[in-house]
Design a protein around this nucleic acid. Structure first.
Lengths: 286, 286
DNA sequence: AGCTCTTATGAATCATTGA
DNA sequence: GTCAATGATTCATAAGAGC
């Protein structure tokens, strides 16, 4: 038995993180407020000042991240007046100077991107998920995010039935799930660094900044159960809700009061839930 | 009747391009030799010196490109010693200082990329196709690269959603009918800035060749028939072969002698072919 | 329960109008 | 003149309703 905690803090992550000790978190995954020229919008940091605004905060991220930890930054520059902003690539260079290793750039392909037509531009259907690390020996659980090969989904999954799949997902490593896993892994392949996810366009009150599948993928890939996850710009709480569901401890920080309330609601029903850990489950088999 | 030419020049594009007048080409599309520390490989420019090596050449590109023209740079930094090189993003910043507009970054998603497994890295399944322009008013033929639409039209036309009605009501006058007419006969949709192309594995002796579909897409998008296409690092001649097939004039430049021979062979069979131009064809209608 | 059909909307961009 | 608000354009997805 293990208690998994999820906590939403109100404030600027620059200040809030000072309360946390060095080397606390295994994963920092976040989608910060994008640079925007308009002052009334959330964030309101103009592109020219974005790097200067970000660096003091990423300095704290660097401090509280474990040496084996990973920092995933979901960010995308916008096109304005016909040209792409450069603040994101300038941020990459600045973060390296700050001591981060730029280890990977994942591409999130948004299958259902925003529509629109312009005379000299197509719809923007991708975002960067930049990976930074403190050391080259970071924790990575590649088996946790394997994907079905070829037409596996159409052929075998259909014959399995929905309940079987749910059972498999919830109890890999024991009994029924283990048997499936034996032949399943032969049918699975490692993914690439291109993620195909749709944005969530549901009728929920709080529209998620990014879909649950995005933090879920990185949490599975870079943490074990019981590890600590941080989202310093947690917004409506997606990251913490997913971390909680996956049995990871999490801290979310949010500046805007009303988002704090939303985020707390999203994790409320399960905050005190006890998660049972299968006795025969080894994290590195996942 | 019109004669389409394709010519392969031997030499360094820095020197060869001096023979060409200002504002000659409508499109420059190329996949330059990647930075590489090993000297025996093609290119052999170390990453630290890549920008300095590239800038004099891109200065020539800027000169010979028409004001309405486009420069597509297919390039991807490689991971070395566990970290991504920054020379590509530094090159973007340097090209902007040189006078280029960084108008777009297309993502080429390589659907069947080379298999492999590393302890802390997934397969690299994408490359950057950076778009640069001299002005914001560049030529773009979006209709030439439209893709078959999903079932959007059918579902949309079956019944208009309440939201559509609201949006139409907000318009003045006969906007409603006009928009419906736009949808009625449409079977194709505009693509996004993510290209899904398979790599051609059945390839020749030139290792860095990109698939024909890649230059083809950009040639269709940014040129009309009879326009001029340049590939300053033409390698085995893919760009020129495609340009010829599409009825565009092209110049390819290659430093390595044996690749020059390969490239010339690839366009040989059709070099002198006469392309018949339909008499009722107007370039601006495409 | 398991389908099909309906409906809303999403980190969008550009041109135009208004302050 | 600079800067901010408004209008026009467009399509893939999943929740929810209906059968």
């Amino acid at each position: 038995m293990r208690i998994t905690t999820a906590e939403i803090k109100h404030g600027d992550c620059l200040d809030v993180l000072r309360e946390y000790a060095d080397n606390t978190f295994d994963l920092i995954v976040t989608s910060p407020p994008y640079a925007d020229r308009r002052k009334h919008t959330y964030g309101g940091v103009p592109p020219e000042k974005y790097v200067d605004w970000f660096l003091p905060r990423s300095e704290q991220f660097l401090r509280v991240l474990k040496p084996t930890g990973t920092f995933i930054l979901n960010i995308k520059e916008k096109a304005e007046n016909g040209e792409r902003h450069t603040f994101v690539i300038e941020l990459i260079l600045a973060l390296r100077r700050q001591g981060w290793l730029w280890t990977e750039e994942f591409i999130w392909h948004k299958k259902n991107c925003y529509p629109g037509k312009w005379p000299n531009r197509f719809r923007d259907a991708w975002e960067r998920c930049l990976q930074f690390n403190k050391t080259r020996r970071f924790k990575m659980r590649q088996e946790a995010v394997m994907v079905p090969m070829g037409d596996w989904k159409e052929t075998r999954m259909k014959s399995l039935g929905k309940n079987d799949v749910i059972r498999f997902n919830s109890q890999v490593g024991s009994g029924f799930g283990k048997n499936i896993a034996n032949w399943l892994y032969r049918e699975m392949a490692y993914p690439t660094n291109v993620l195909h996810l749709a944005t969530e366009c549901s009728n929920k009150r709080h529209s998620a900044a990014f879909p649950e599948a995005l933090p879920e993928w990185f949490i599975k890939l870079f943490t074990d159960e019981g590890d600590w996850v941080l989202d310093p710009f947690v917004g409506s709480g997606t990251t913490c809700a997913v971390a909680l569901r996956l049995g990871r401890n999490s801290v979310g920080i949010e500046l805007v009061r009303e988002y704090v309330e939303l985020a707390r609601q999203s994790i409320e029903p399960a905050t005190a839930t006890l998660f049972e850990t299968p006795t025969n489950h080894a994290p590195d088999q996942r």
